[in-house]
C-alpha cells in the first residue's frame, strides 16, 4: 500500500513536469493547429537564461523567473516570425521541419554558450532542499512547487481564454480562422501571441523545473516528446487535457517502473498512447472537429 501511494505521488510530480510542457504545446496548437517542435529547446534555452541571471549574476529568483518568461516570449514570437508566418500556406511537414530547424539552431547555440561550463548545471531550489513529510509520505518541496505551478498556469489560462478580449480572440481564431479574419481580428498577431505565450509558459516551466532536472543543452527533446505525448493524449486543444495527459503519463511510467520493471518506464507511455489513439483518435478530451469534404 505504501508502495502504491509513493508510486502515485511520484507519478503525479513527474507528470506535472510533463503537464507544464504540454500546456505550452497546447496553447500554440489551439490557435495555430501546428506543433512547435522547438518547444523543448525554447524551454531549455529559457532555463539557461534563468540560470545565467540567477546563478552567474546573482539576480534574485523571482526576477530571474520573470526574465526567463519574457525571454521565452520573445523567442516564441521570433519562432513565429521565422518559421510560421511566412509558411502559413505551406504544408504541415514543412512547418514541422522549420520548427525542427529552429530547434537545432537553439541547441547548437546553447552548446556554444553553456556547453563548456559543466556536464549538467545545477540550479539552486527556491524551496528548502530537505524533503518534508506530508501525511507519512516524504516529498521534495520543489516538486510540489512544480505541481502548483502547472495548476496555476492551467487555471490562469482557462480564465484568460474565457474572460479576456485577447483570449477570446485567440479562441475565435482557433475555432475558425477565416471567420475571425472577417470579424476584424488580425490573426497574424494572434498567431504571434500564441507562439509567444506558449514559449513563455516554457520559460516559466524551465525556471520552476531546473532545480529538479538540472540544465544541459540536450534536455529539450526528451521533455518535448513527453509533453507532446501528454498533449496528444489530452486531445491537443484542451488545457485540462494537457494536465490530465501529463499526469497520466507520469503515473503510467511510475507504476510500470514499480510493478513491472524499471526497463519499462521509458516505453510504457508510448505503448499506452498507441492504444489510446487507436480507440479514441482524438485523445481523451479532444473535440472531434467536423471534416469538410
Amino acid at each position: 500500500m505504501e508502495l502504491l501511494v509513493y508510486l502515485l505521488l511520484s507519478g503525479l510530480t513527474t507528470g506535472s513536469l510533463y503537464a507544464l510542457i504540454a500546456l505550452g504545446i497546447v496553447v500554440v496548437n489551439k490557435a495555430t493547429a501546428v506543433i512547435n517542435f522547438a518547444h523543448g529547446e525554447l524551454f531549455m534555452f529559457s532555463g539557461f537564461v534563468a540560470w545565467m541571471l540567477h546563478v552567474q549574476m546573482g539576480v534574485p529568483y523571482l526576477p530571474s523567473l520573470l526574465a526567463a518568461v519574457a525571454f521565452g516570449f520573445l523567442l516564441g514570437a521570433a519562432t513565429d516570425l521565422i518559421a510560421f508566418r511566412p509558411l502559413k500556406n505551406a504544408n504541415i511537414i514543412s512547418l514541422v521541419l522549420a520548427t525542427i530547424g529552429i530547434a537545432f539552431m537553439l541547441r547548437g547555440t546553447a552548446r556554444v554558450i553553456w556547453g563548456g561550463k559543466g556536464d549538467y548545471l545545477p540550479f539552486p531550489p527556491i524551496t528548502s532542499p530537505e524533503p518534508i513529510m506530508i501525511g507519512g509520505i516524504m516529498v521534495i518541496p520543489q516538486q510540489l512547487a512544480v505541481l502548483a505551478g502547472s495548476i496555476v498556469i492551467m487555471v490562469a489560462f482557462a480564465a484568460f481564454f474565457r474572460l479576456t478580449r485577447a483570449g477570446k480572440m485567440m479562441q475565435a481564431t482557433a475555432d475558425n480562422a477565416k471567420a475571425a479574419t472577417l470579424a476584424g481580428i488580425r490573426i497574424d498577431r494572434i498567431y504571434m501571441l500564441s507562439f509567444g505565450t506558449g514559449a513563455a509558459i516554457a520559460g516559466a516551466a524551465a525556471a520552476l523545473m531546473a532545480p529538479l532536472t538540472l540544465l544541459y543543452p540536450d534536455m529539450g527533446f526528451s521533455f518535448f516528446i513527453k509533453g507532446f505525448a501528454a498533449a496528444v493524449l489530452g486531445g491537443l486543444t484542451s488545457l485540462p487535457g494537457a494536465v490530465l495527459g501529463g499526469i497520466s503519463i507520469g503515473i503510467i511510467e511510475s507504476l510500470a517502473g514499480g510493478y513491472l520493471h524499471s526497463s519499462f518506464i521509458e516505453v510504457s507511455a508510448f505503448i499506452v498512447i498507441m492504444f489510446v489513439l487507436v480507440v479514441r483518435p482524438t485523445g481523451l478530451l479532444g473535440s472531434t472537429r467536423f471534416r469538410r469534404v
Binding site: I35, I92, F228, F270, I271, I273, T282, G283
Partner: peptide, 24 residues
C-alpha cells in the same frame, strides 16, 4: 492500421511512439 483512423498530428505522434518503441 492505426493510420486508417488517424490523420495529421495524431498520426505523427502515434508513428513517433512506434519509432520510440522500435528503439526500445
Amino acid at each position: 492500421l492505426p493510420a486508417l483512423r488517424l490523420s495529421g498530428l495524431y498520426l505523427a505522434l502515434s508513428t513517433l511512439a512506434f519509432a520510440q518503441f522500435t528503439q526500445w
